[in-house]
Amino acid sequence: MTKANSYFRLWSPGRSTWCNQEVAGVMRRQHAIERLFPPTWNRDGEELRTDVELVPEPDNEHDPNAIAVHVDGTPVGYVPAEVAPLWVRTIRRISDSDCTAITSGRIYLYERDDWSDWSASRPTKKTSIRFDILLPENPDDAIPLNDPPALPHTMLPKGGIVQVTKEADYFDTLFEHVPESGYGLLYATLHRDVVTTARSSRAVVAVHIDGAKIGELTPAMSAKFLPMIDHLDTRGLVPACWADITGSTVAAEVRIDAVKAHEISDSVLDGPPTVVPSLLPEVVTTWWYDVTTPRQHRRTNVAVGR
């Protein structure tokens, strides 16, 4: 398997319930995990928060659904065996798109008394590890329904949920994005727009999905985003962000999750654009995204509509 050339973060704007999954097999890799901590780590207990990589192992002799957990390229454990079958298609889809799936991890390292030697007058110290990773309960809540924007753009960091307004005025367009489950993630872009009434005109932020307007932010909220939108426009960039949609056949609502102008860093405003890689379409295959088979030799089967 070739090394992935980019990362894809499993990400939800927050509506789905996140569940901590304890990484399996960490004690067998204790030394590798201890090397992630400083030599003087607090023996009473010290926590490390870090990104972790999820790497499928379709040739694993014990479990073809195995998903290894890596930190900085070093294997440190596995997604629990009871959870891996739920995630194997999603992780292999990302891997098959020449990306590595990443999510947040939390490692807690501590020493405890070990009384296993009954002849000893005092206990020895034994290192223990608690290693959790964050995964949505539903893998579909971690992958957007649409492709990243085609326009030159930069992805805004998460900064808080903001409700989009006037979706009802654009429901004919928005309805196309409502998934069968009624909930899903989307890429959105933010644009300066002018709303004119009989008495006045005002600038607002228009929210677009796949190039079409699906709503706008309130004037007060727009004022918190417009300076950032205008600055990026001078660089030929459109700000993109994550959004989620909840809806039915008769109505839908959208929320975005992005930093506001006073929260964004200069490294995002003036640095190189941050873009999210495109994923291959989800397909039903007999290989289940078997990444050991070169892509050019795989059969093309029916794409799953979203």
Rank of each mutant, 00 (worst) to 15 (best):
H297I: 14
M155P: 00
D72Q: 12
R92P: 01
L109G: 10
A68S: 09
K125W: 09
P281Q: 03
I102D: 04
G73W: 11
E61M: 12
S265E: 15
T293W: 05
L134A: 13
R192M: 05
T40M: 07
R29V: 12
D44Y: 09
L145P: 04
H231C: 12
P281T: 05
N146P: 02
Y108D: 13
E137Q: 11
K213R: 13
R29M: 15
F131R: 02
R235Y: 08
T40W: 09
R92M: 04
A252R: 01
D114V: 03
R295P: 00
A206T: 03
P148T: 04
D44L: 14
L280W: 04
Y289R: 03
L186A: 01
A252Q: 01
D169W: 05
A252T: 02
H153S: 08
S104L: 10
D193I: 04
N42T: 08
L156V: 10
N301G: 13
E216D: 07
I245L: 02
N42L: 15
A303E: 09
D270M: 09
P75S: 08
P144D: 00
R92Y: 00
N5R: 13
N20F: 14
Y108R: 13
R49T: 15
L190K: 03
D266F: 04
V259T: 08
L174W: 02
P136E: 14
G271S: 12
R92K: 05
T173Q: 13
T74S: 10
I129Y: 11
A101W: 02
S12T: 08
L280V: 07
H191P: 06
A206V: 03
T197E: 09
R255Y: 02
W87K: 02
